[in-house]
Design a binder for these strands. Structure first.
Length: 588
DNA sequence: GCCGTTTTCGGCCCGACTGTTTTCAGTCG
């Protein structure tokens, strides 16, 4: 987890240098170094101890020294020097969408604005408009972006919290007397963002655990401590609450603190009707005798239900489904055989070679991987000629891999503003897997955007609609479009919808997955990896699908390769082939 | 700040989009 802290330190230096309007190349050097550390497969401290930091690409003597000092002391001179020159609220302005370094520096120097609050006030009062290149539209956009910034404050994306929670749980388990330790709360339900982390520990010696807790790695400060509970703040700002439970109540406490609130209320209501009382200490009968509590399964059994996976506990019909014996058999990460949206270094925003991607995919147990780089409209995207050369390269590398894994040819083709695809359909028809995505003109109205997507789905050469809503968690809202209409056309055309597993995207969302399943549209869960390390992110997509009640059979890339290929071929209207949804098995 | 077999200085990715402008600066990816 210290890698993430080093990444944050380098990023902050870059931000501050940018606000001081120093050389953009210096700024870029720090950003590049941050990116390299972020994708490092080993703890950066290991390299530090061996004096090998300078051997990393993009890390020269200066940056290596700053990282080394940071690892040793938790900060570095350069960072502190810069923090002394830029008021602390100014770099926060950069988190507001549409405000970059130039605008932040301008409002700071011209209007003495050093906080998001002051920025909002200036945007609303009209004060901002006095500035050069600042008109009413930009002022309005900034004011509304501040609203979105506030809405995401205090919540962190799952992938930022999970590694810390996992590391803390592992350390808690090492404390003598601890029999169980688990993360509960929204993190256990795998929600896309979490407010804080709730950790539960079973032990007969709570004092010992509570005393050890603030000394665990990553903890910055102790917020509160009682005999059986404690709260700390991590250096990243994340709050972590610990509760120590007697072993006989652990299952009940785990259920209670996992939530959700709606699920708990529904379960307690059900218990009351059966003359039982459910609390975090156990399930009790009318005479106050404990009838369950040690194991979570027993809590459910006491109220006449099978165990319900945490991802389903949102009060959205899971109790009724459990009662009727119709809980889905949720998809597992182990079901995933293929990854169908992966960028190689042929994309300007990606960095791994085909060989590196194949090696990483093999380690993760993937059987097949489609290489889907960007099309012409993206910076340095592939045109027809470069795509053909790229396809030959993919096939050459694939031959050397002997199926471990299989590399498929593909493309992430842009859906242009009018719904046309960014490359000639004849060329696209030669590829194994075509992902079609919207990357531009997000501000269309819903009707136009829906038509744009539908037109692309009707092309007959698209296998899957990539990141269908375009949202970025906490920073960009989904563009407006009619999901039900898109699902209807996808079903007619035999096109799958992607569950993009990039932790900032998670697109489709959980509830959209559930809708797709209900109307009989198949899904593909893909990493959208931009380097080999990102292939691991597939698990985030699997969790979203689980929250959407999705089973392995709803997801095409759980199929063995031969069957997967058959599905893709059938789902496409290539010359000489007449497609029907029924034959493809894609009807509801 | 980093890099390099065109190397110790001079270059470093770039195009789309937007809102502000009458030719372009700033942001984003």
């Amino acid at each position: 987890m210290e890698n993430a802290e080093v990444v944050a330190m380098l990023g902050e230096i870059a931000d501050l240098l940018e606000l001081k309007e120093e050389s953009p190349f210096k700024v870029r050097a720090y950003r590049r170094a941050a990116q390299v550390v972020d994708t490092l497969p080993v703890p950066v401290s290991e390299l530090g101890q061996r004096g090998e930091l300078g051997g990393l690409p993009g890390v020269g003597p200066h940056t290596a020294a700053r990282i080394a000092q940071f690892l040793e002391t938790g900060t570095c001179d350069e960072l502190e020097r810069l923090r002394g020159q830029v008021p602390s609220g100014v770099s926060e302005l950069l988190r507001v969408e549409g405000v970059g370094p130039k605008t932040a520096a301008l409002v700071w120097k011209e209007l003495d604005i050093t906080s998001v609050d002051a920025l909002e006030e200036a945007a609303r009062s009209g004060e901002l408009i006095q500035l050069p290149r600042m008109g009413p539209k930009r002022a309005k956009a900034i004011a509304s972006a501040v609203g979105r910034y506030r809405a995401r404050l205090g919540r962190v994306p799952l992938h930022r919290a999970l590694p810390y929670a996992e590391a803390l749980v592992a350390r808690l388990r090492e404390i003598p007397g601890v029999t169980q330790a688990l993360a509960a709360g929204s993190l256990r339900r795998r929600m896309e963002t979490v407010g804080d982390v709730d950790l539960l520990v079973a032990s007969t010696e709570p004092e010992k655990v509570v005393r050890a807790f603030p000394n665990l790695p990553g903890v910055a400060s102790l917020l509160a401590r009682g005999p059986t509970r404690s709260s700390v703040r991590l250096r990243t700002g994340l709050q972590v609450d610990l509760r120590v439970i007697p072993p006989e109540s652990f299952g009940a406490a785990l259920h209670y603190f996992t939530g959700s609130k709606a699920h708990n209320i529904a379960l307690r209501t059900r218990a009351v009707r059966r003359g039982l009382k459910v609390s975090e200490y156990g399930v009790f009968d009318a005479k106050g005798r404990r009838v369950a509590g040690e194991r979570e399964e027993d809590v459910f059994r006491a109220v006449g239900l099978p165990w319900i996976p945490p991802e389903l506990r949102e009060g959205l019909g899971e109790l009724e489904a459990a009662e009727a014996g119709r809980l889905p058999e949720l998809i597992e990460e182990e079901d995933m055989r293929g990854d169908l949206h992966v960028h190689s270094e042929a994309s300007s925003d990606a960095s791994s070679s085909l060989e590196e991607l194949a090696a990483a995919a093999r380690k993760l147990g993937r059987r097949y991987v489609a290489i889907t780089d960007h099309s012409r409209s993206r910076p340095q995207g592939l045109d027809e000629a470069r795509l053909r050369a790229h396809v030959r390269h993919i096939r050459r590398v694939d031959r050397g891999l002997h199926g471990r894994p299989h590399l498929l040819t593909g493309l992430e083709v842009d859906i242009l503003a009018d719904g046309a695809l960014d490359l000639d359909e004849e060329v696209l028809a030669e590829l194994d897997c075509v992902v079609a995505s919207v990357h531009s003109r997000f501000n269309m109205d819903a009707e136009e955007m829906t038509e744009r997507i539908v037109h692309a789905l009707r092309s007959g050469v698209v296998h899957v609609l990539g990141h269908p809503s375009g949202r970025l968690i906490g920073s960009r809202d989904p563009y407006p479009f009619d999901l039900e209409r898109v699902l209807e056309v996808a079903r007619e055309e035999g096109v799958a919808l992607e569950v993009n597993a990039q932790p900032e995207r998670l697109d489709l969302t959980d509830q959209a997955c559930r809708l797709a399943k209900e109307v009989g549209v198949k899904l593909m869960i893909s990493s959208d990896a931009h380097n080999a390390r990102h292939l691991e992110n597939l698990r985030y997509g699997v969790w979203v699908a689980r929250r959407g009640w999705v089973e392995a059979r709803d997801v095409l890339n759980t199929l063995p390769l031969s069957e997967f290929r058959r599905r893709l071929r059938r789902a496409r209207r290539v010359p000489g082939y007449t497609w029907t949804g029924e034959e493809a098995g894609l009807s509801p």
